[in-house]
Simulated assay, not measured.
Amino acid sequence: MELEVRHLRALCAIADTGSLHKAARLLGMSQPSLTTQLRRIENALGAELFTRERTGCRPTPLGRDVLSRARPLVAQLALLVSETRAAAARTDGARFRIGSTASRALAGWLRRLRQRLPGTDITLHMDVSANALLRALAAGQLDVAFVHEVEGCPLRVPDGLERLVLVDREPQFISMARDHPAAAAPVVDLADLAEDRWMVDPTVDGEWDGLRRVLGAAGIDPPVLHADYHTAASLIVVGEAVAPCQPTSGPRDDMAIRPLRDDPLAVRLLLYHRPADPGGPAAPPYEAAYAELAAAYREAALRTSAYRQWLLRHGSPLLRAG
């Protein structure tokens, strides 16, 4: 077996995520397929590159040496592809490539950008992993990345990226069944959810670590379900679980969304971009992107009653923004 670029990408993804499951999701393949591929790579090299532990995968000393050689090759190939695509885009017309984690502000942001940048080909790449989006941005595959950073769990930001802060601390609300006893109150105490199953998506960077830290500080050790948030909704509405959610989440007839007392769970909303090249072609419209994102986020925030009330109680500058 000869090593190919896809094998090197797989090794880098496993090292970056520390997990075969997360790496497989990042690469768009199944975990069994990635496990088989890793086994074949190790057999071809005649040595183990990762140790498999209960908490994830860690490179062996030989694995670290292989990775130190693989990363520059993968990065150079990604740069070659992105520069070639950028050159084609300059020939064909303006293009603006957006990466984003999930947000209720996305639809309004895209609508505003299309109005502000007529004739620009605006594309959107969604990913649950903020770190994956930042790596794509650093490799030139995106022009901006709108991501959230879980409080207490810093993102792994590649060198050279520049950051604009949209919201320094966005509280995370809690979603539960409409007939949950805690839903009768406008604000929920963590203690009222101590007996519930909590649902978390472990592939969202920092989500599980941040939740575990907050629950531990409150002296709560509930059973936890690991699943994606699309699956979560069906479990929440029948009372099988509760889950953190964005405060901009819209109301539903079969689900209650409430703020947590003292806002123990929070994220920062950030827009990253690469620095403009003074000697290169015209820089992507970073300032316009940020301004339209801020306006779209404000629209989404004020459209949701529970979050609007929270903003009023806290005297948020969003209420005064134009």
Rank of each mutant, 00 (worst) to 15 (best):
W310A: 09
G322W: 08
G46I: 08
A107I: 03
T231A: 14
T35H: 13
L110T: 09
S100W: 05
D263A: 15
G279A: 04
G216V: 01
W208K: 14
H226Y: 15
A194Q: 00
E292D: 12
V204F: 07
A288N: 09
A217D: 15
I174V: 14
K22G: 10
R313M: 09
L26A: 15
L67M: 06
I257Y: 05
R39E: 12
L190G: 00
R197E: 04
R111D: 12
P317T: 13
D201F: 00
T35R: 12
P259M: 08
L124T: 02
T51G: 13
A24I: 11
P244K: 00
L311D: 03
A227K: 11
D179V: 10
A185Q: 15
A306R: 11
G250W: 01
H230E: 15
L27M: 14
R116G: 10
G216I: 00
L311M: 15
P317S: 11
A139L: 05
M29D: 03
L133S: 06
T55P: 09
V238C: 14
P275V: 04
G322T: 13
A232I: 07
R303A: 15
A283E: 02
T35N: 13
T55K: 12
D228P: 13
R39M: 07
C12L: 14
D263K: 05
L26I: 04
A130Y: 05
T231W: 14
R261E: 06
A321D: 04
R197N: 06
T248H: 04
